[in-house]
Design a protein around this nucleic acid. Sequence first.
DNA 1: AATTAAAGCAACCGCGCATAA
DNA 2: TTTATGCGCGGTTGCTTTAAT
Length: 324
Amino acid sequence: MGRPPCCDKVGVKKGPWTPEEDLMLVSYVQEHGPGNWRAVPTNTGLMRCSKSCRLRWTNYLRPGIKRGNFTDQEEKLIVHLQALLGNRWAAIASYLPERTDNDIKNYWNTHLKKKLKKMQAGEGGGADEDGVGTPSEGAGAGAGVGGEKRPAAPKGQWERRLQTDIHTARQALRDALSLEPSTPAKEAPPLPTTPAGSATYASSAENIARLLEGWMRPGGGKGPEASGSTSTTGTTTQQQQRPQCSGEGGAASASASQASGGGAAAAAAQTPECSTETSKMAGAGAGAPPAFSMLESWLLDDGMGHGEVGLIDVVPLGDPSEFF
DNA sequence: AATTAAAGCAACCGCGCATAA
DNA sequence: TTTATGCGCGGTTGCTTTAAT
């Protein structure tokens, strides 16, 4: 029957997002929460496709996103999870709540693939074309991994598969983390004991501040519209890359308020109900321990002794990220 | 200093799944 | 039960930046 386009192509703007658009989207989501994306363009006046809005939010504007360099641990985790789960980036991303699937995917394609290929080549092994990521067969997933289309599995089946995924991932994480026993908190920065919730605002404000920074900087780089999202992310990402998770909360919100002179960003920094997703993140990181610490303690807590109790039992099946 | 190639990243596209009507 | 619609995911594209010559 032919699926209709998700939105009218006429009058729909494409390409990089401008800071103005970002602000419109952010303030809308702050107010209404994410979801009902279909209504977003109408209600905000954004000339964007609903999908585009969702993507922009989840990949860039959403609070709690960490951008920039991946740590060694994150890298290892991704490599292992990719080997186990295949190119199921969303699933992999659920283990790295601060990273977006798009980010992980890009990082895999641009860095890790090559890196591993090189390593394998070094070992004398002939890496297969896709390289490395041949997902271990029978990793339980059984399903089409590594690019194959997912089989349409009934929900029960999907849940079982997810359980297996979690189980195998857990094993892999153990391996991954034990690879470098002597990489203490080197890459896992100590987490500030931030008051619950502040991390959410911080992250949110940080993202917004970041975009505003690029926007408001007079002649900074390429000017407002060119700078748009690209500059805030592209070039400046590296420069603005801050020491992650190191209690930037106050600073971030401060800069947000400064930069915005109030406005949406400030609101963003203060609106308690960032969004459902935000709350998720907040809940996730209540006090915002990065997922890694959580994972580590989960994995390394040998005293857990509850057999397989743990993630699987805690997490409502179907969304491991809920755990974080 | 100018040009070209390579790398990195944001965003788009199309498909499948879930669900409400 | 069927159909329509929205959402999410993975693959891919194209623009921008950086490095090399």
